[in-house]
Design a protein around this nucleic acid. Structure first.
Lengths: 343, 343
DNA sequence: GGTTAGCACTCGATGACGTTGAGTGCTAAC
DNA sequence: GTTAGCACTCAACGTCATCGAGTGCTAACC
């Protein structure tokens, strides 16, 4: 579709623009050295590339900037795989050495490392609930009428919730209920817990346990784990360092988006069946607030099942090669680490 | 120190400036109606107030804006106690009705309500660890060499941490350890846990438990709860709506500060002995990034012991009366709610 | 003596205008 | 096919005049 020379020039323009954030002219491309043609020749090619929709001109007498289509082409034809410098490799290695952390802290830590390395905003979605199951259930009385319900999942996460103990229910009643649940519901996926509670345990509990109704409604609350991903953010302020966001109005929408967990989850959700790195450029993102941003995501998984998503959000003018390289490493390492953890 | 009329005029200026964010002139004050003097008279008083340091002039031919000293005077002499409208009262009432939430969620929720009501940024510090004690300790094995340690505190918070089980230690060993801890350490303040573990339990454990050394070092990790406050933020984007922060450079410093938990903790820490509402205006704050901001804080407590802090961060041009009113209500209600919860 | 009307003065904000320079498109020469 | 040359475009920037909100001061008024 494009000639070799056009590809070279397009690459040079995107590279330059990523670095400078300013429209690039034919002269500066010619001067770079890696494209050995005069400005005039490059101008001709640039005009062609613009006609083909790969470049845009902010105004007549300015240089060119890549269009979304241009970025897309650039990303799809990225050849040089990005390599980290020793200091950065060390940073990632030491991170994975500290695997004794609880999963949650580990993910938060991963988010902050990502944002530090890339200078963009990092977004991590915690493990999907669909693939985690119940390992242990516990009810700890706090007072005579309140208790903490604790759910330990197969991934080692601990969820807890305060519930009211219905009047008339004794501690030994609760113990019996807890034992019953643990014997019947362990290893059941979290999202099936409540239906199983009713279908399999309903009758047995009705027979053996007093105050059946009240206890069931208490368990209903206790097992009502939020099915949304946990979202971990880091480096949101990095957004403010980008010249394209020197206008507060533009950042505001983005920041508001970042505060809304469900929207983020939707944006980060991998297209079904997709594995590996995904790049969404500008308007390819479904939300208007980030139509000037690119979102690069990678999934991490266990036994081939996608568990969660890592993402980097930055301006469309993003260091694609570098970010993709980093995400690649991190998602693989996370996958390996979790497999080891999970057994 | 100030005449009645001066006080009236100062009040009027601060009020107007808080609303409009623009220097106020003598004519507009005169037109308000509540100060029944001509612009000329008001101009004279304004000149005096400026000489006394309560007002400032951005440039010769502009109106006046309050100086930090002016805000301070305004705040110290706030008379009309602010009252909420019915819708807002309802918002707070319903919030406190949902007390079945776990404490953590409750605090996060309180933060978001605060920021919604005030349109500023809200900062909440969770309960101090000093005043909470151990209610229950639990070790749940995940695999043969890993377990989750769960600490339930007297305030109903649940902390958890993953630890490695030393090789050779059996499940029954662990059970014995857990029982011992629960019988001896319940109601001990969290920050004393580890010393008590060594002083009181060391000998007994050494006698009854195999692998003493390894188990102790495991418990050392398990009980190593982080002593810093948890920080809950909400409405950080509200900062971007303030005209004084239309310049990205100014917001950046503030946002960076908001990301640093320890600094925030220090800023929010109440002066020793102080109870109730505290207002820190501009440079009264110890951190330079918020020298154009005011921070209003209130403590919530149990039995007179300060447990945590609620704060609102906004521009020096802040709706002091309103914010103070809201913080007053919320801190009292939180105190009441926690006392009830805590018993 | 306190209050106010009147008036000259100040100075940021706004907009018109010219200049500058980076960059283009086109043509003609190589 | 490539490149040098040149006229053209247009945002950015600086200058300048205008405008108007607001002041300080003086003199008149109650």
């Amino acid at each position: 579709m494009l000639t070799d020379r056009q590809r070279m020039i397009l690459n040079a323009i995107v590279d330059d623009y990523i670095r400078s954030a300013e429209p690039v002219g034919s002269r500066s491309i010619s001067k770079r050295g890696d494209v050995g043609f005069s400005p005039a020749t490059i101008r001709n090619e640039m005009a062609d590339l613009e006609e083909l929709g790969f470049l845009e001109q902010p105004h007549t007498s300015a240089g060119r900037i890549p269009s979304h289509k241009g970025y897309r082409y650039y990303v799809d034809h990225l050849t040089q795989s990005f390599s980290l410098n020793p200091a950065e490799l060390h940073m990632m290695k030491t991170f994975f050495a500290e695997k004794l952390n609880a999963m949650e802290q580990m993910i938060q830590h991963a988010a902050s490392i990502l944002s530090q390395m890339t200078n963009y905003t990092s977004i991590l979605l915690g493990p999907e609930v669909f693939h985690t199951s119940l390992r242990h259930f516990q009810l700890l009385p706090l007072h005579e009428n309140q208790a903490v319900a604790i759910i330990v999942t197969s991934t080692g996460q601990v969820e807890n919730k305060t519930v009211s103990i219905p009047p008339g229910v004794s501690v030994s009643d609760l113990e019996r209920v807890v034992n019953l649940l643990n014997s019947k519901l362990v290893n059941v996926p979290l999202y099936k817990l409540k239906t199983r509670l009713y279908t399999e345990l309903g009758q047995e509990m009705q027979r053996h346990i007093e105050h059946y109704e009240e206890i069931m409604s208490m368990l209903d609350i206790a097992l009502d784990n939020q099915p949304d991903h946990r979202v971990y953010l880091s480096g949101t302020t990095n957004m403010l360092n980008q010249p394209e966001f020197k206008d507060v109005e533009k950042v505001k929408d983005i920041f508001e988006l970042l505060e809304q967990t469900p929207l983020l989850t939707k944006l980060m959700a991998p297209a079904p069946g997709e594995q590996g790195i995904q790049v969404k450029i500008g308007t390819e993102n479904t939300h208007e607030a980030i139509s000037n941003c690119s979102l690069i995501t990678a999934t991490y998984s266990i036994d081939g099942k996608a568990l969660g998503t890592i993402g980097i959000l930055g301006p469309t003018r993003m260091e694609y090669a570098r970010v993709i390289g980093i995400l690649n490493i991190l998602s693989h390492d996370l996958t390996k680490l979790l497999s080891h953890w999970y057994k």
